[in-house]
Nucleic acid binder design. Structure first.
Lengths: 382, 382
DNA sequence: TATTTTATTGAATACGTATTCAATAATTTG
DNA sequence: CAAATTATTGAATACGTATTCAATAAAATA
């Protein structure tokens, strides 16, 4: 038997090629050219075709065609006779051939990789964001390299690998890029879409909720419910989210002659919301209404309020933003503003895809609307 | 001026090479060989060095060395004279050269990519898992391709891209692989570590909490607190987590002569826990103690219990597993079992790295301990 | 049937890097 | 100073694929 041979060795392309090599149902190579059989059997070491990473060259030899034909079958599939196509596919399947994506991308300049840069992945809003992005992009053949950052402003060193991997696009969620990072992408013609952020001094596209308008509507609603003393718990004051939500909110309050308005700074986390609320209510017992920049902050606020011993919404109303799942949980029942998450992701993906097809496409800024979700943390009237 | 030239064109390697080409402080190339200057200026179109993705070949020309030397400087750095090294680094920095990771990996067979396959990324436990894995692996130069799945058993088509990208290792969290998927990885010498799962009929390494032992301790604790009628809300019965936690729990109950023990099936989610608890308490009002397979299920259970109007822990005690952050939130104060998350990740990373260095390393099965976190959802006595 | 058109194919090449190998330069040793 | 090491370098090559180009085979047209 041929497979009693024990010498190991690697496959080299033969200078003389068989016209035809067949594989029987056991997966053992048979055919008219012994040297080929010999070499492949040696590799297999009795494990059939496992433990060997086949190349298109190998498949070509085993199918009795040229490497070019194998490539044609497995990439586009154009211009190959039905007979050879079948043969190639058969051999490829039998030997479980998987093309090398790196070699492929070297030629095509298409890596099929998209970078996703995230902060606060522990915030349920952003876990959802990641999940939805994956579910949208994977069926299109794009895969995600995940980058986690702790910084509001993403630094160049955090994303340089994305450049080296030639990602075809980048999604930055809940953060912005440093000028150096942005230039790095720009130089390499990698388009970036900011998700849930907006930066004036940037050339990046951006998809976000119209925070300014939403905040105005929220303020109007809270006024309608006869609140008098307002507070806002934001994130960092130089993020567009906090700036815009604060601006819209404050404008409406001023227009309506509200004088009592305290702005407290959190950091978009539960802990931040909890602490900010404690401080807020210690100094300003008369606050009867808190607008939180996002739900996770609001949940922290709610817990702080009840820890102090105040009642929601009788003593203090709380309004959130995002409509994450925990906001609907029984103890919270948070009244909030729902971001149109699915639509935002869809739009972002569309921009990314458009930039891939047309690298000189214009920057796009998309403001989406969302809607108010009324639950039980804002009193009805007084 | 040289840059008044408007013809565009791509850079070709010159057959005759300059001995030295300098870049002045403006970033404009100067030197003794005009043809080189010409070509590079043409490319730049007056935008200095933007909008051009340089290759090591380009840097070589601009630094007056061979491509091999550039490669030596930027990869290992061995065996290059200090003078040329400096020159190369200077030019590379000035032109913002980034080596192509795909071309590199084609040679080195090291992609620097690790696949992470996740389910339930919306569960705070797994968001944390992802964050920690990133934070551990990125400093080591490894990057993550993120795969999301809805399946308990990961199918081949979901992970085939990981094979094509030649990932150097795979972490599968909260799921197992189908035999075909596992073989796919095995054939390609890609080692897999199951995280928080264990599968007997698999050759994959695994890192998980000793669920059996933990469940026994939990049962003992609940017995000590004088509970009589027990329930367990698990996930799917063919996952190791549910099986082992159930087994340990049930064994102790039996040893202690407990006859009232109801097993209800959830799906590791809030909604699953909520619904299972509703059903459970409708049929079995006498249950005074529920052990939930994980915290998010337990939180759903707590909400269901209080929705029904029962008191925790006076009427019903709830015990969780994981110690996710929301378990510590004010309304929940869930008594639970903390998984040693950081240690589990560290161990997993170590196994992955070991497998990279030694592909024939043995399968490793790591059971970690964790600890009980006593809060307020289990009554003290009765 | 002769001629033109189209389909199919393989050889050669390109992608951008790391590495081998041989040649040369620099240094050390005697 | 001569000989032997060692350090440095560039040319050539390999990695695994897609694609161009030229050649051949097949089909369609006259």
């Amino acid at each position: 038997m041929l497979n009693s041979c024990t010498t190991a060795g690697s496959i080299k392309k033969m200078s003389t090629r068989p016209n035809d090599v067949n594989c029987n149902s056991e997966g053992i190579v048979t055919g008219s050219v012994k040297i080929i059989i010999f070499e492949y059997v040696v590799i297999m070491k009795g494990k059939k075709f496992d433990k060997k990473q086949y190349t298109s060259e190998d498949i070509a030899v085993l199918a009795g065609v040229s490497q070019a034909t194998v490539s044609r079958v497995l990439s586009g599939g154009a211009n190959v006779s039905e007979k050879k196509r079948k043969k190639v596919l058969e051999v490829a399947a039998k030997f479980n051939y998987q093309p090398n994506a790196h070699a492929r991308s070297l030629i095509t300049k298409k890596t099929g990789i998209i970078g996703i840069v995230m902060r606060n992945i522990r915030d349920p809003f952003y876990s959802a964001v990641l999940e939805i992005f994956y579910n949208r992009l994977a069926p299109l053949g794009y895969h995600l390299i995940f980058i986690n950052s702790e910084n509001e402003i993403i630094q160049e060193h955090e994303i340089v690998k994305l450049v080296q991997y030639n990602v075809q696009g980048v999604i930055v969620s809940d953060a912005v890029l440093s000028p150096e990072a942005e230039r790095q992408f720009e130089r390499n013609d990698i388009s970036v879409v900011l998700f849930n952020r907006y930066e004036k001094n940037s050339k990046c596209s951006a998809v976000f909720c119209d925070n300014y308008l939403a905040a105005k509507q929220i303020a109007l609603y809270l006024l309608k419910m006869k609140h008098n003393s307002f507070a806002f718990i934001g994130g960092s004051l130089n993020t567009s989210i906090t700036k815009d939500r604060l601006k819209g909110f404050e404008e409406v309050l001023k227009e309506n002659g509200i004088t009592k308005f305290i702005v407290q700074t959190g950091n978009y986390t539960y802990e931040g919301g909890f602490k900010a609320t404690q401080e807020l209510l210690t100094e300003h017992r008369d606050i009867d209404c808190i607008f939180c920049v996002n739900d996770i902050t609001a949940i922290g606020a709610i817990d702080a309020i009840s820890t102090i011993g105040l009642k929601i919404p009788d003593d203090v109303s709380v309004f959130g933003f995002d409509n994450i799942r925990p906001s609907g949980w029984a103890p919270y029942q948070l009244t909030t503003w729902e971001q149109p998450l699915e639509d935002m992701v869809t739009s972002t993906v569309n921009i990314v895809l458009e930039n891939i097809n047309n690298p000189s496409a214009d920057r796009k800024i998309l403001r989406m609307n969302g809607q108010m979700i009324v639950r039980k943390t804002v009193r009805s009237k007084k």
